[in-house]
Structures are given as C-alpha cells and as structure tokens.
Write a protein that binds this DNA or RNA. Structure first.
Lengths: 250, 250
DNA sequence: GTCTCGGATTAGGCATGCCTAATATTAGCA
DNA sequence: TGCTAATATTAGGCATGCCTAATCCGAGAC
C-alpha cells in the first residue's frame, strides 16, 4: 500500500477543485455548477427538456462538450440530471437542490456587494457569478443575516430561501404589456452591465410604475413612468430586459 | 477558419479557470497561486531557495508534481519563479507580486469575515484560503475601505499594502524568549483551528503581555500574563504557534 | 414511406495538474 | 575518493473538461 497517512488535499483522481463547502451528498465542480444553473434557468427544473444546442449556446461551449458532460452528470450517484439521448435533459431533485443553492448564493452576493460593499448596480453580476461557487454555507448564512433575510436582489429577482425554490410570481415581459395598462417593474435582467447602466439612468428600476403607449414598433416602445410624464423611447432590446407585474393599485 | 465570432468563455486550450480578476500581466490558476504563496511563506522571496521536498510537503502533494509545475512556472513569460534543477526555487518579481497580493487578499478577508460577518477567530482561515483566489481588485479595495485600511489581521499578521510586501517586524518565537523577559504577543499562526480556539480560551491573543517562567521542559513552558498571575502551562506545540515582540514599556 | 437537414452523438485529441514507479543526482560520511 | 541515503527528476498514466471532425438520428416536407 502506498503512503496515505499524511494529510493530502489533492489525491489521485480527485484533484479537481471541489466547490461545495457544505456537507451535501455530492460535490460539484465549477463546470458542473454552471451546467446545473444553466439548465435551471432554461426551464429544465420542470417538465420541459433543455436541448444540447441551447445549453451549449448559453454556456458558450460546443455541443459535443455538453453531450459528454450530460452523460457524466446523469451517471453520478446521486444523479444530477435526467438525460435522454437526442431528447434533452432535466434536473433531478439533487440537481435542483444545487442549482437553487447557486441562485441563492448569486442573489445574496449581488445584494451584499451592492448594499455592503457599495458596488454599483451593474457591477454586482460578474463578481457574484464568480464567487457563488466558493462561499460556504456559513458565509451564506452570515450574509443573509446581515441583510435581514432579504427577499429580493438589486435587480428585483427573488432570493430563494434556504433549501427552497423561489415562489413563482406573475411576471410578464414589458413588451407583452397591453397599452395603457398600469404595471410595475418587478425585475430587470442582470446579464448586461451596459444595459443596466442605461436603465438606471432612465430611472427604470424595480418598483417603478409605468404604462406603455399604444404607438409601438418592432424596434422600440414608448413608455410613461408615473413621475416623469414625458414619454421615454426604449429600444426593444432594452425593453426586453424588463419584466413587469400588474399594478395592484390600478 | 472555424467559428470564433460568438462569445465563448472557455476556449480550446484555455479552459482552465483563470483566477486573476484584474488586468495584470499574467493570469494564474488556483494551483499556481498555491505554489506562489507557499514559496513566499517558505522564504523563497529572498535569497534562500525553497526545495522541492519542502514545497511538496507544504502543499500536500508529491514531489514529481512539484518538479513539473516549477518547470512550467519558470517557462512562463513573465516567469513567476527562478528554478534551478536540484537546487531549489525562488520567486521572480512577478511571482512575488502575485504572492503578496494573495497574502493581502487572505488577511483582508480574514479580518472582514471576523469583523463584518462575525466569524469566530478559528473559522476565518479556511474561508479566506478559498476565496483569496477569486476576489476582484474592486472587492479587495472595497473591503479595505470598509475596514479602514487596516494594518493587522485577526491573528496579528500585517496586511500588505497594495502592490507592496509587508514591512518585516522584530518578531521572535515565544519558545526562544528568555525567561522573565517581558514581551507582547504579536501574532499567532492561523493554520490550526483547534489550537486557535485553545489560545483564545487561554486569553493568549495578539497584544497580550507575558513572560516565560525559567522552569521549562521540551514538552511545555510556563507563562504568566500581566492580568492573570496564575501561570499557564503551555504545550510546546501550542507555544510554537505564538510569535512575540519585546515589550516596549519594559 | 422516404428523403433531407439540422441537431446530437461518437471518436479522437489536448492542456492542466495530479499520481506512481523508475532513475538520476547530490551530499554526507568513511 | 567512493559509497550510500536522501532528494530530485524523468517517464508514463489518468481524471477533468474543453476542442474539431466525422457520423448518426429524427422530425418535418414531399
């Protein structure tokens, strides 16, 4: 038998950087984390299957890499995904657990970076995306405590409670809002910093009340906010970043 | 030409998780970081060469792995280490820069975890060790600002200023302190949580004044603190965690 | 029912960073 | 100086996770 008595952090065949800091059943690498989160965000937590192509596009990698990884994720015990050749992939219960945990980490980190470390709105995403893999359960708990167990991140996305998925809200894309129907911005996509800066400049942040003007084109929409009665022209791209809910006061 | 137009995060031959968040000259992996920091802490920032064996021991890996990595680090442009076969390794200027940056990250994080996130003394090391690789320069700056550009981490170790090595202090091991010579605990090793808890229980934290009793053995020393005149028996192992400086008031 | 074409898979390769086994070098001691 | 023990290196292998090129499958058009 070779020497295994001495403390050794990296061992034969186990030298990947393992990311789970808590004692969960399976440990995951950064890559695996990214797959799980992407599958979740593409709808693979429910009935719908996520396709190899779409996953590859989202992750910025080639499809054969995705196929290979999905096979591995499906073979792990406990399995993280349900994978059927040529048909797509879904998360298992274990896969959903880790994916939701990552979402919780991400959104807690975003709020923490914004509120405590004074990051601006558009700076939080990238840092949270990097750190979400590495914080321990203790870090997660302490941050949540400092922030007072918050419910929303700086972009209006709900922060899942521990070991829970988020409750689905009645959100709809701003671009699908009927004209003159009063609505409130519920969240904005955090994935593009430049767009975020522009939205902030225009005052279009979660909580703001608005209506859409009847005159709209494929390229843009006109909107009115409660405070600023001068209408704002919004490119469709920018508008597509915004989700709204019906104004309960209307 | 293959398709390279689409955003791609991981590219052929470049899919390692790169760790430098700032625009420095060279990017480093977690493994490389660990080597650089270990070499620094083993004295390889100065004239002395660090040996393959000692490095392997410190990193918890086998010597052939170390040899292989050192060859790579020496061949990078800019080179991170000076490596002479069979003679040992030292850090280059670039290697020192990254290593000191990691030390700054580590100690800032320890203080931050302790002061802001309310981690206990013995909990900060592991979390800081993991996160030090991944925080951005912005994170580093914001944390330093919140903490008021601190000079010492919770264990009494000096926090390097940005882009600087630390100023060496006149520290000496407690075990080398002459009997009855008044001294002050300047720092304690953070590498063993159990020992840290014990030291805290005994009140042996940085800043505490103490003297060593003349009666000492190989296995333990007796010490007296200013406040508690009952002498404390300290195992040599525990005592070896403590560094002291002469008491300026004596 | 067959063809086609886009989506998906297999096959084979490579960088990173670890391992063991075998070999080479250095340094200490006679 | 010559031998031996400790230290270090080379050689070869493997898991992870990406790539390209080639092949395969399956859903819709006919």
């Amino acid at each position: 038998m070779p020497n295994i008595s001495r403390p050794r952090l990296r061992q034969a065949g186990l030298h990947l950087r393992v990311v789970n800091a808590h004692p969960g059943p399976a440990s995951t690498s950064e890559s695996i984390d990214d797959y799980l989160k992407a599958i979740l965000e593409l709808g693979g937590a429910e009935d719908s299957q996520v396709t190899t192509n779409v996953l590859a596009e989202r992750l910025g990698i080639r499809t054969p890499s995705v196929t290979g990884m999905l096979k591995k994720l499906a073979l792990r015990r406990p399995a993280l995904v349900l994978y059927e050749k040529h048909r797509g992939v879904r998360l298992t219960a274990a896969g959903k657990r880790r994916a939701w945990e990552l979402v919780r980490h991400h959104r807690l980190l975003e709020l923490f970076l914004h509120d405590v470390l004074k990051y601006s709105w558009d700076e939080v995403h990238d840092e949270a995306e990097r750190l979400e893999h590495f914080i321990s359960e203790r870090f997660e708990d302490r941050v949540a405590a400092i922030l007072g167990d918050p419910e929303l991140d700086p972009h209006g996305h709900p922060i899942p409670q521990k070991h829970q998925a988020v409750v689905q809200r009645a959100e709809a894309p701003l671009l699908q809002l009927p004209a003159r129907r009063a609505a409130i911005i519920s969240s904005v996509s955090d994935r593009n910093a430049a767009d975020l800066r522009e939205l902030e400049r225009l005052g279009l942040v979660p909580g703001v009340r608005l209506t859409v003007e009847p005159k709209r084109s494929l390229a843009s929409v006109m909107i009115r906010t409660a405070k600023n009665q001068a209408p704002i022209r919004l490119s469709s791209e920018l508008a597509s970043r915004i989700l709204v809910i019906a104004d309960p006061a209307a």
